[in-house]
Design a protein around this nucleic acid. Structure first.
Length: 506
RNA sequence: GCGGGCGUAAUUCAGUGGUAGAAUGCCAGCUUCCCAAGCUGGACGUCGAGGGUUCGAAUCCCUUCGCCCGCUCCA
């Protein structure tokens, strides 16, 4: 009987496997680690690189309407003023000292109704404006208080204060949930601050980018002027970004240093809806093509109320991780918000002049923005399988196998001599060298029983194992074994490279 | 940031104040013509870190760092 795994167990097993086999290590582990930072080991870096290569190939190299870009991580700080990050990337938060609930300080109001010196009613509420706050507060009053409010209606003085605007040292905010006292509003600055140059003063403050997108917008003019390309077209970039997440969680899922794969696709405003739908569906399909089961993958459109102020439409590609359903990529119609902002802040013209239609316009932007580490983690979770395979006596044994899509697998092919004699190691080494020379990540192993070697490769996710046996010396054939079906077929030793390459293309 | 749990070998864990252990894995050799548990041998630990109590601390206390779960957060 297969044991039912709890979600936590599965994640723990995966984290253990990642460490044991060299996929992912905790950063600076020998010093006790550091919260929110992770390192990719020998197998992990190959896996992640394959994810990035698949993205780059399908987005940039196989298309003629998208070009690549690689921007610096630190930019002129004005970029982040224009983008809104300096203002908006800080969320003042308050906590309830009683029930421990947490709120965004700009959404919590203190409402007090006074009749002369007498406090008739006071309440803490969650609301989106003074009027709504007052209404919420009245709704919260009990029937007796409500009657008194009505009786004294013309003598009442209402005070409605957003808690992040409350005067320092004033009365504590009231918790909308339990009525307990709230802490003062505290700011959580999500951007990593640093200093450019050796002098640490206010004029040298700079930020590590919290997203790669702004580097693309800042270079939009340069690309347009030099790449002989015109709307509709896209600029793609893969690169590191940094966010001081309040609470990094779930292995590499929410890290403070992470890699993004972003496209900014510029088009005429009238075509924005069409391109939004196109990219939403294209990006969703990309994950399915690389092996994420569609039953675990969701394309979720944001409700109107959920949209950021600059977005007209947004959809998330979500995956059912063992720790819950979470976002891999967001596809948004950002309108002309970003280019307009940069035009305003930089004073540079961001409009495009269409020679054919003689029309001047600021393009709309469709932004598919994916997390590379999140995609890599999803592929790892999806690949992790425990199945049953027969041992040499035919008894069923549990086998741990990473069923990566072959193109994502860190090692494409392992080469074994069946036994370490009769010239088999020499023949195997020859095949191994040919694979390496052809650019395939290959692994040579002659140690111990062959079954043990197969299992080791299963745990690394290697899709194909080639074994040189006694027959090789007589007819030049070898066996190639499939990781998932365990089936073997005989092929010519000289055709190993070609066979593996063909299977990878399938 | 709050609450709870946990940190001992590469991994999973045992070890309730008195000489740090097991299994798996790993390495070397033997055996082996195809799916890990055949044989022999071997290496491996600042018991997360720092401080305190004690004759003596993996064990008790304090601080800190990290991981997991729940809340919160995710422009």
């Amino acid at each position: 009987m297969a044991k039912e795994s709890k979600p936590g167990d599965l994640m723990e097993k995966l984290v253990g496997l990642c460490k044991r086999r060299g996929f992912i290590f905790q950063s600076s582990e020998i010093y006790g680690g550091i919260n929110g930072f992770w390192d990719y080991g020998p197998l992990g870096v190959e896996l992640k690189k394959n994810v990035k290569d698949e993205w780059w190939n399908t987005i940039v190299r196989q298309r003629d309407d998208v070009v690549g870009l690689d921007c610096s991580i630190i930019m002129n700080p004005k970029v982040w003023e224009a983008s809104g990050h300096v203002v908006n990337f800080n969320d003042p938060l308050v906590d309830c000292k009683g029930c421990k609930a947490r709120f965004r300080a700009d959404k919590v109001y203190m409402v007090i109704a006074m009749a002369g010196e007498e406090v008739v009613h006071q309440a803490g509420v969650e609301a989106d404006g003074d009027e709504q706050a007052k209404a919420e507060a009245i709704a919260k009053a009990n029937s007796k208080t409500r009657r008194r409010l009505e009786e004294k209606a013309d003598r009442l003085t209402w005070s409605v204060v957003r808690v992040d605007h409350a005067v320092e040292g004033g009365p504590a905010g009231i918790c909308p949930m339990c009525g307990g006292h709230l802490t003062d509003a505290r700011k959580f600055n999500m951007m990593f601050k640093t200093f450019v140059g050796a002098m640490e003063d206010s004029t040298s403050v700079a930020y590590l980018r919290p997203e790669t997108a702004q580097g693309i917008f800042a270079n939009y003019r340069n690309v347009l002027d030099t790449a002989r390309i015109k709307p509709p077209f896209g600029i793609a970039q893969i690169g590191k970004s940094f966010r001081n997440e309040i609470n990094p969680r779930n292995f590499t899922f929410r890290s403070r240093e992470f890699e993004q794969m972003e496209i900014e696709f510029f088009c005429h405003p009238s075509e924005a809806d069409k391109w939004y739908e196109y990219w939403r569906d294209t990006r969703y399909q990309w994950y399915i093509n690389l092996g994420l089961k569609s039953s675990k993958l969701h394309l979720r459109s944001h409700e109107k109320e959920e949209l950021a102020h600059y977005a007209r439409a947004c959809a998330d590609v979500e995956y059912d991780f063992p720790f819950g359903t979470a976002e891999l990529e967001g596809i948004a119609n950002r309108t002309d918000f970003d280019l307009t902002q940069h035009q305003k802040f930089s004073g540079k013209d961001m409009a495009y002049f269409d020679d054919e239609s003689k029309e001047r316009y600021i393009p709309y932007v469709i932004e598919p923005s994916g997390g590379c580490d999140r995609a890599t983690l999803a592929f790892l979770c999806e690949a992790y399988t425990e199945d049953e395979a027969p041992d040499e006596n035919g008894a069923m044994q549990t086998r741990t196998v990473l069923r990566f899509h072959p193109r994502l697998a860190p090692i494409k092919v392992a080469i074994f001599p069946l036994v370490k004699k009769d010239g088999m190691p020499e023949s195997a080494d020859k095949v191994y060298r040919e694979c390496k020379k052809a650019g395939l990540t290959a692994f040579y192993d002659e140690k111990g029983a062959v079954g043990r070697r197969y299992r080791r490769q299963d745990e690394a996710g290697t899709p194909y194992c080639v074994t040189i046996d006694g027959q090789t010396a007589t007819d030049g054939s070898v066996t190639i074994r499939d990781r998932d079906s365990l089936k073997q077929e005989r092929i010519a030793a000289s055709s190993v490279v070609e066979t593996v390459q063909r299977k990878l293309r399938e």
